[in-house]
Simulated scan of single mutants.
Amino acid sequence: MKTVDVLSFRNIYIQDSTCIFCQETTENLFHLMFECDFSFKVLTNLIPSFQNFFLRPTIFQAIDHIGGLSVADNMKHSLLLILNATVYFIWLERNSRRFKSNTVCATTLSSKISRAIYLRITRWKNGEYLKDKLNMKYR
């Protein structure tokens, strides 16, 4: 992902290098995904078990955590889908804020992601069961 730190490494300098969400830290991949309060709130709105981490997880730790859960494979696949969709939508929101000056709050973004997951899981064989277990609603 072409975050501010990656672009500056390539000698492309951005005037405002702070995180577009919190305005507190220099933007980098680890901060955007999930050290930032905004992105962590989006993640925990969708997968509440991440609130139990002592420190905020990186993307890699989140994937490892989901992979290590002792749940059915279809549940792991659903959680990985939620995680991937969260990363994708946070990146879209970052770009929307940086290039279009459009913003939505973490709750609204979580709802948007939830709707996308809901529609995707609906087509799955055990879709109704998974939507119920994951508390997915078309908000």
Rank of each mutant, 00 (worst) to 15 (best):
F99P: 03
F38D: 00
T122C: 02
T103L: 00
P57E: 14
S111W: 07
P48W: 02
K100C: 11
K2V: 02
K41E: 13
T26N: 07
F34I: 04
Y118N: 04
T58P: 07
T86V: 05
T25L: 06
R139K: 04
L80K: 03
L92T: 02
L79N: 04
H65A: 08
K133L: 15
I20G: 00
C22R: 05
Y129S: 10
A62D: 09
F30L: 09
D64G: 06
L29M: 10
N102L: 03
G67T: 01
L46S: 11
A62M: 05
I113L: 09
F50R: 07
F99I: 02
N95M: 07
K137H: 14
C36F: 06
I47C: 14
K76R: 12
F40V: 01
W124R: 05
S78K: 02
L43C: 08
N74A: 13
N95T: 06
R97T: 01
N11T: 02
L134Q: 01
H31E: 15
A62P: 06
D64R: 11
N28H: 14
I121H: 04
H31S: 15
I90M: 02
L134E: 04
F89P: 00
V87D: 00
L109F: 01
L29A: 08
T86A: 08
R139G: 02
A106E: 15
P57V: 14
L134C: 10
T26I: 07
T44L: 14
Y129M: 06
D132E: 15
K133S: 12
Y13H: 15
S39W: 04
R97Y: 02
D64E: 14
Q61W: 01
L119E: 11
D5K: 06
Y118D: 02
L130Y: 12
L130T: 10
